Computed example of a mutant assay.
Amino acid sequence: MNPMQDQSHDTDRPATEPEAAIDPFVEHRRLLFGTAYQMLGTVTDAEDVLQDAWIKWHATDRDSVEYPKSYLVRTVTNLALNRLTSARATRETYVGPWLPEPLLTTTDAAEETEVADTVSTAMLVVLETLTPVERAVFVLREVFGYSHAEIAGFLDRPEATVRQISHRARSHVQSRRPRFDADDASRREITGKFMAACQGGDLNALMELLAPDVTLWNDGGGKVTAARRPLHGPDHVARWMLGVMAKPISAGIYLESAFVNGELSILGKIGDYIVGALTYDVVGGRIENLRFQVNPDKLDGLRPASE
């Protein structure tokens, strides 16, 4: 049985029969996934954590659990902490830049519930610079609004210690927080021009869209050909982008706008198959940073939920 799927109901039962209570795990699944995803930065690991949490939950004497939501958040938080600690060692040997797994969202992220608060890809990159515990505290406090006392209970740490960690993490993130100043209409216009320049091979038009200090990070994970070092400057970035589009392996690729992590972004597709995702920051009317995710193992979160 897949715990991630809604369970069917018997539509023939008598009308007078009371509705079955919703399993707290199902009820709070968005919150639990959002917590795991923002702590880990990968859809795959977040789903694995939820699977483990589901198993633990269904092996628990639920009559002894007074507050199921808090119990589940605590379980997911600690499972994610354990996984993040071990993942850090793996990422030290990762081939090329490591980027978070992109997540397809609705056209208006505000329409979603807890996962609607999924931070941008740029913010997930910043969260990677925190320690595992700092990241857990920041996500629970700043994203989901838990009190220091509640977080202390989740992590089995004194509240005073959690306050100190929270202050340190918030200061760290604020000093590195990405800047955005483009409204939706401007971002949509820039996105359209960027796709047209890439697909038309227009170097000058592409360079005009890039900020003087633009940087591109490319995550291929050693699975596909990708730049293993960040690229800097409009000329280098634009020529690299057009070079990728011109390669024989890129034949048939077309670009399509989509909302990724709550922001208008770009998907590269061959037919219905997604081969990459490009997220970026727009500052002062130009693209300042680009993050190109092409690792095929990190594209599962871009499939529509119905697939």
Rank of each mutant, 00 (worst) to 15 (best):
S8Y: 01
V162H: 01
A258L: 05
P18R: 11
T107M: 06
G262W: 07
V237N: 05
R229W: 02
V95Q: 07
M1A: 13
L104I: 10
L290C: 04
T16V: 15
P24S: 10
I249Q: 11
N2T: 13
R177F: 13
V139P: 03
R30G: 06
E134Q: 13
V282S: 06
R177H: 13
T44K: 13
G153T: 04
V76L: 05
L210V: 05
T107W: 15
A169N: 01
H9C: 04
H9E: 14
R163F: 08
Y67E: 15
P97R: 09
S8W: 01
V275D: 00
E142R: 03
E17H: 11
G145M: 06
L84M: 13
Y146M: 02
S8R: 02
G268A: 15
L31K: 13
G41S: 04
E134Y: 00
L103M: 14
G41V: 00
L242H: 15
V119Y: 00
V260Q: 07
E256L: 04
P296T: 06
M39T: 01
R13I: 12
F33K: 11
A80S: 14
G201C: 10
P296G: 01
H232F: 15
T106R: 15
V275P: 08
R170C: 00
P24Q: 10
A227M: 03
A20H: 07
G153H: 12
P3C: 07
L302C: 10
K223S: 04
H28T: 05
T11W: 10
P14Q: 07
T75H: 04
G192M: 04
P24F: 05
E66P: 00
L84E: 08
V43I: 03
L203Q: 10
P14G: 02
V49P: 07
E256V: 09
F144R: 00
R88A: 05
M4F: 12
E150W: 02
T215M: 11
G233Y: 12
I266V: 14
I287S: 08
G268C: 05
